[in-house]
């Protein structure tokens, strides 16, 4: 790694909503290319807000965010960002193929021209055979895969995921966690993954940013030493258990603190 300038630089970022709520206060963070970072915290800690500010979907009230050298949401090629929402957020009237094709269509790519890329993205998430199905015909886990395929269709370098698997059952979630890790490794992605699950954040990331609520802020920034590739066996290692304990304690600290504030 010769390029040491961070991919994402947040300095003194604050978000205050029109109703006066301070969702994020004084958040400073730099994220290097290729990192897998989790934003972990209780609800109301501003982790989703922070993610949306990085994507440019929400404006910044104070401070600065730069992504790949540009202010968030401005300039550059926004194809570089893929976003996966909390729900699958598919268009129910369109087939799986049409849903994955959407980002390319919005950029003026013809259907014929986009077909190989859409098919590639669907193959990535193991849904090549379901191109013609409608979202309602799919299970929750499969819908989420379509959503990931859609985010990957533009071949982004940065993947932002907003509690993507919170509504899924444990087994589907574990499987999708492995899939995301595989995508991250294969495509050399940088991932920011918002979650409220300690286990998920520790399993996936090489760095966990722990956030606290009222006002939303970063309280710990914990680098995790564990090496990749990680498989189900990693969940049984002492290293994983130790990392979970460490992150859990950090998270609990934020809850105690929030409790005292009441």
């Amino acid at each position: 790694m010769t390029d040491t300038s961070p991919l994402i630089q947040m300095s003194g970022v604050e978000k205050q909503f029109a109703n006066g709520t301070v969702a994020v206060r004084d958040m400073s963070l730099s994220i290097q290319k290729g990192e897998f970072v989790s934003f972990l915290g209780p609800s109301g800690c501003g982790k989703s807000t922070a993610l949306k500010m990085v994507s440019g979907l929400l404006s910044v009230s104070r401070g600065k965010i730069s992504v790949n050298g540009h202010a968030a949401g401005e300039g550059g090629d926004r194809n570089d960002i893929g976003f996966v929402f909390q729900e699958a957020t598919l268009m129910p009237w369109a087939t799986v193929f049409e849903n994955v094709y959407l980002p390319l269509k919005l950029h003026g790519m013809s259907k014929a021209g986009a077909r190989p890329r859409v098919e590639e993205a669907l193959a990535m998430v193991g849904l090549a055979k379901f191109a013609k199905a409608y979202p309602r015909e799919l299970s929750g886990g499969m819908k989420m895969r379509v959503s990931i395929a859609r985010a990957m269709a533009t071949k982004p370098k940065l993947l932002l995921m907003d509690e993507p698997f919170a509504a899924l059952d444990e087994m589907t979630r574990a499987k999708l966690n492995d899939d995301v890790l595989a995508l991250w490794e294969e495509h050399k992605l940088t991932v920011i993954f918002v979650t409220h699950s300690v286990f998920e954040s520790v399993y996936l990331s090489n760095r966990v940013v722990v956030m606290a609520a009222r006002p939303g802020r970063v309280v710990h920034d914990i680098p995790l030493p564990g090496g990749y590739p990680r498989t189900a066996a990693y969940r049984l290692t002492a290293e994983y258990a130790e990392a979970c304990r460490l992150v859990s304690n950090a998270l609990e600290g934020t809850l105690d603190h929030a409790h005292l504030n009441h």
């Binding site: 957020t89 919005l106 533009t154």
Partner: peptide, 22 residues
């Protein structure tokens, strides 16, 4: 859907695309 609207914004859809496809 609000998330779908956000997605169209993320991919810089034109107003016409937003009307036609969403």
């Amino acid at each position: 859907d609000h998330n779908l609207r956000d997605m169209f914004r993320l991919y810089q859809a034109t107003p016409w695309q937003r009307l036609r496809y969403l």
